[in-house]
Design a protein around this nucleic acid. Structure first.
Length: 103
DNA sequence: ACCGTGACGGCGG
DNA sequence: GCCGCCGCCACGG
């Protein structure tokens, strides 16, 4: 069992803290994990780490766009709608309103 | 240790 | 408002 890097651990921790009905961008997660420019790396981590019972569907791309999710943005959109979010096509409605901002 | 890959971000056309 | 290019960073072979 290779121990996950500190960065990976932080990323997973941040994702686990995103409340239902709220979302955070890959860039947000990267910044909260201590690497403001590692948004792409966050995507890599989620892809490799796979699922761990974490709300990965609450992590969206910049501007509230729905991306990633193993090439299944529809499934992701459905999960977000189930939490009360408004999703139009590949985008989240009132993105600014549901964006998670930890203090 | 090097190189290619990718669930990204920002800017320009 | 959508499409494409380049830059960024960690992962895996």
């Amino acid at each position: 069992m290779t121990a996950p890097s500190a960065f990976v651990t932080r990323v997973l921790l941040v994702v686990s803290r995103i409340p239902p009905g709220r979302v955070a961008t890959y860039g947000d997660v990267a910044a909260l994990a201590g690497r403001p420019r590692a948004a792409r790396a966050v995507g890599t981590i989620m892809r490799t780490a796979g699922r761990g019972g974490l709300p990965y569907h609450r992590v969206v791309a910049a501007g509230g766009r729905i991306g990633g999710y193993g090439g299944r943005p529809q499934v992701k959109a459905a999960l977000l709608r189930a939490e009360g979010l408004v999703v139009r096509g590949t985008r989240i409605g009132s993105f600014a309103g549901c964006r998670w901002r930890p203090r």
